[in-house]
């Protein structure tokens, strides 16, 4: 239970960064930290005490494996996170090119 709470604390650090910071790169870093904590939370849910890695061995019958389903889901999620980070970075580079700043409060023309 304490591990879940620590994982949530990590999520809250990322959430604080997204909500409070005004630099676009800091916001992207906050989103990345939230993504890390969610991946870790999935894998924590699938862990089993004295579990083995979910890979069969030759001439050996392994009884207690950890849960492979969250690992399979997280595996796709990591690569998607990298692509999403690259997309955010490219948008940030475009904004820097156009307005010359990373500060979101200085970008007036988006305010309609």
């Amino acid at each position: 239970m304490s591990l879940y709470l620590l994982c949530l604390t990590l999520f809250c650090v990322g959430l604080y960064g997204v909500l409070r910071k005004r630099n676009i790169v800091k916001i992207i870093i906050g989103i990345g930290i939230m993504e890390y904590s969610m991946n870790l939370f999935f894998v924590l849910l699938g862990y089993r005490y004295h579990g083995r890695t979910p890979i069969d061995a030759q001439n050996q019958n392994i009884l207690n494996m950890v849960d492979p389903l969250p690992q399979a889901l997280v595996m796709t999620s990591i690569v998607i996170g990298l692509a999403a980070t690259a997309l955010l970075i490219s948008i940030a580079i475009r904004i820097y090119e156009k307005y010359g700043t990373f500060d979101i409060t200085k970008i007036k023309r988006l305010k309609g």
Binding site: L82, A83, A86, I89, S90, I93
Partner: peptide, 12 residues
């Protein structure tokens, strides 16, 4: 795909 992403960033 990832190489294409990086190539686009560097060319920019």
């Amino acid at each position: 795909g990832l190489f294409a992403i990086f190539l686009a960033l560097v060319i920019l």
